[in-house]
Design a protein around this nucleic acid. Structure first.
Length: 157
DNA sequence: GCCAACGTTGGC
DNA sequence: GCCAACGTTGGC
């Protein structure tokens, strides 16, 4: 049976909180702490083998820095039950957990960051619906066409 | 610090 | 179900 084509995702994180180098050191990580239903639902719709672009946000410069692979999905987010966590959710319960997350594996760090500025230069405004000012979703799907264009660009810098 | 573009909450 | 008020994200 032929292997299924992966879907592509963009996942944002602040590098001073959890950056590509943290993931590189750990090898894999739980993408926990997501408290937005839309973002959570995107994580639920991932499948093993999907590819995610690691985007550094809230830093200088913001942009895509690396690649990850989704290796597990629908894992219970432990931080929702941790009273010491900033992501603790008193409304969640262990019988019916509200928040789950994916497990990501490090693939690579690109030689250079593909900055938001360059991304904005590469795509037409209507293509940028997923990477644009004001879209604050930290996890977003990326169409195969845009993903391939990003990959070609990233491999040539 | 500003502010645009969202999402969430709660009164009605 | 509407919508005003409020909170958050994140680039600049």
């Amino acid at each position: 049976m032929a292997s299924q084509e992966p879907n592509y995702w963009l996942m944002k994180s602040e590098p001073n909180v959890y950056g590509i180098n943290h993931l590189k050191d750990e090898g894999e990580t739980l993408w926990d702490g997501i408290r937005n239903y839309q973002a959570r639902n995107f994580m639920r719709s991932m499948k093993k083998g999907d590819i995610a672009f690691f985007y550094h946000s809230n830093c200088k410069p913001p942009g895509i820095v690396g690649l990850m692979e989704i290796i597990e999905i629908k894992l219970i987010d432990p931080t929702q039950f941790d009273k010491n966590s900033k992501y603790f959710d008193p409304k969640s319960n262990k019988e019916n957990p509200r928040w789950d997350c994916s497990k990501l594996k490090y693939i690579k760090t690109f030689k250079e960051i593909l900055t938001l500025k360059k991304i904005n230069d590469l795509f037409k405004p209507e293509e940028l619906i997923l990477i644009r000012k004001g879209n604050r979703l930290s996890i977003m799907p990326i169409s195969t066409d845009i993903a391939k264009k990003l990959l070609i660009t990233l491999d040539n810098i």
